[in-house]
Design a protein around this nucleic acid. Structure first.
Length: 411
RNA sequence: GUGGCUGUAGCUCAACGGUAGAGCGCUGCCCUGUGGAGGCAGUCGUUGCGGGUUCAAAUCCCGUCAGUCACCCCA
């Protein structure tokens, strides 16, 4: 016997959960496509060299890297941005410019697991490659809000900032080495979580003097929207997105963002932001040799699911089946089968009992699976030329013709 | 990568040195054409794995694997 088990950090989604996930994905896709984004799919495996060195030393350690059966060094996709960048470089001539694509695929990270963090998880990306236009930034931000609205989330805030504003720390001479900027930003980004004092402590632990740490913090607090941000916010307003909030504390952890950065907070969900994004004009340059401007964002799908769950916005549906056709007895199988076929031909998701077990067992099955309707067709009904349609939830049933059943179940 | 906690029936857990128990579930019956409730009966185990201590180990010790939470880091 082999012990049935999933790998650490990998998950099964039973139908009940998978249905919920699918319904959320469908809504996200519909919104992405409404904004002119088309799907892109890339392979799970890439050449290791495609992935290595793109995310930083820390992240390189979290890559799944191994030799395939042909001795090639390969790695599992770590995010969507790098494979998409590879595609942009590889198919430049064939792709329209700007290139707007969305990508909903799993990624793999060999991290230690913890709450809300897995080794295989789903990312929902949407990016615009090939334009520096600030309207691209605005469109990405508006898209984020619309996707949330499509999922029923209306109480959210979009925190926005521009990393260019942090360059003042260098311009003012507070720090000399611009390579120190990413680590400073990482600390500043935690201000919500650990407070000003926590950031101060962390900066000093990183070797900045108390004076410099204070100056960094003061500078961050004194920041005001620049021209570019004001224009992006205005463009968002013109597209009906009003929930933007300039947030000078926002820094975001990733190194590669170059100017616009944003993050979404959902009211009633406190476990962090469910999505974030920004502009990264130099990332693809590392990859292709020529800079390709890009702006995009990603939903952390699992957190999004958690937030939707907490807000009771997930459908309760536990099956896609609409009706179960019971089989009264062995000699009435043919009647049930042809009825099933009729319903299916009308586009109604129909299941038929596969064994002539007792009626109460068949009903119990429908109940267990959450099938909303059951059809009972015994000798009496057949004599009258009707069927009984039972509504499992209201516990009512009525006799009707097959056509009436079809009418009722189609709505 | 570092650290804490946990691993017992299909599930949730109890027993914490003396040979393993409860609830839920599952199966059957009460109910011969109707599910969720109830009653009765039945089913349920190499206590993650390996070693050690002991007259005796689910219980203590070591190792290992797995899970979980947190840090680092990151959506």
């Amino acid at each position: 016997m082999i012990k049935p088990q999933t790998l650490k950090g990998f998950r099964d989604f039973l139908p009940k959960d998978a249905l919920k996930r699918q319904s959320v994905i469908e809504k996200i896709i519909a919104t992405f496509e409404r904004f002119g984004f088309d799907p892109l799919e890339t392979p799970a495996l890439e050449y290791a060299e495609t992935l290595l060195g793109k995310y930083g030393d820390e992240a390189d350690k979290l890559l799944y890297i191994f030799k395939d059966n042909g001795g090639r060094n390969v790695g599992l996709r770590y995010d969507q941005t790098v494979p998409a960048s590879r595609v942009v470089a590889q198919y430049q001539q064939q792709l329209p410019n700007p290139f707007k694509r969305y990508q909903i695929q799993p990624v793999w990270r060999a991290e230690n697991t913890q709450k809300g963090r897995f080794r295989e998880f789903l990312q929902c990306d949407a990016d615009i490659f090939g334009t520096e236009s600030l309207f691209a930034d605005a469109e990405i931000i508006v898209l984020t809000g619309k996707a949330l609205q499509a999922l029923g989330i209306n109480a959210y805030k979009i925190l926005i900032n521009d990393r260019q504003l942090f360059n003042k720390i260098i311009e003012k001479g507070i720090i000399k080495d611009e390579n120190q900027l990413p680590t400073i930003l990482r600390s500043l980004d935690k201000i919500q979580k650990i407070g000003e004092r926590g950031v101060m402590n962390e900066l000093q632990e990183k070797g900045f003097s108390p004076d410099v740490s204070v100056a960094i913090l003061q500078n961050a607090k004194a920041m005001r929207e620049n021209d570019r941000l004001l224009k992006i916010i205005e463009a968002c307003n013109n597209m009906g997105e009003e929930k933007l909030l300039f947030s000078p504390n926002l820094a975001r952890g990733l190194d590669y963002y170059t100017s616009t950065i944003f993050e979404v907070e959902i009211e009633g969900y406190e476990s962090g932001s469910v999505c974030g994004g920004g502009r990264y004009d130099h990332l693809i340059g590392q990859f292709t040799g020529t800079d390709v401007p890009a702006v995009g964002f990603a939903f952390g799908f699992d957190r999004l699911m958690e937030a939707l769950d907490q807000l009771n916005l997930l459908p309760a549906k536990s099956t896609a089946t609409r009706v179960l056709v019971t089989v009264f007895s062995g000699n009435l199988f043919s009647a049930s089968l042809s009825l099933t076929s009729q319903l299916r031909n009308k586009g109604i998701n129909t299941e038929v009992s596969l064994e002539t077990i007792k009626l109460d067992k068949q009903l119990k099955y429908a109940d267990r699976k959450g099938i909303p309707y059951v059809i009972i067709q015994g000798p009496e009904e057949i004599k009258k030329g009707v069927v009984k349609l039972k509504d499992m939830k209201s516990q009512t049933q009525e006799e009707m013709t097959v056509d009436e059943v079809i009418q009722k179940l189609k709505t």
